[in-house]
Amino acid sequence: MPTLAHYLFVSGGLFAIGLLGVLLRRNILIIFMGLELMLNAANLSLVAFSRFHPGHDGLPGYSAQVFVFFIITVAAAEVAVGLAIIVALFRAKQTTHVEDLDTLKF
């Protein structure tokens, strides 16, 4: 049977991959995908904790799953707004490469 530590390490690994994507990739869309990976890693650890810490009635903590539901909703809203910003940015600059976006650079 997998233990809590198994799930936490998968969650941490997924978060680390997302973080590396944000740090190392220069394409703004891939950076966005890295953000999604990090959000999902947080969801996995929330659900794992809810399953491994049952309440008084022996059921998993469903508050954590409601929280995951909210995170998914906020992430969907964030993706919609973020991609609209990327499209607007592409219209203005014709690039999705973060190093070409240096207008605000001093």
Partner: peptide
């Protein structure tokens, strides 16, 4: 950043008392 994060994670997970616990049965 990756090495720092993963080492911190390992430390935290192994200091958790319930880390090695398997899933409790549902009622």
């Amino acid at each position: 950043v990756l090495v720092g994060f993963l080492s911190a994670l390992t430390k935290v997970v192994f200091s958790l008392p319930e880390a090695a616990q398997t899933k409790p049965d549902l009622p």
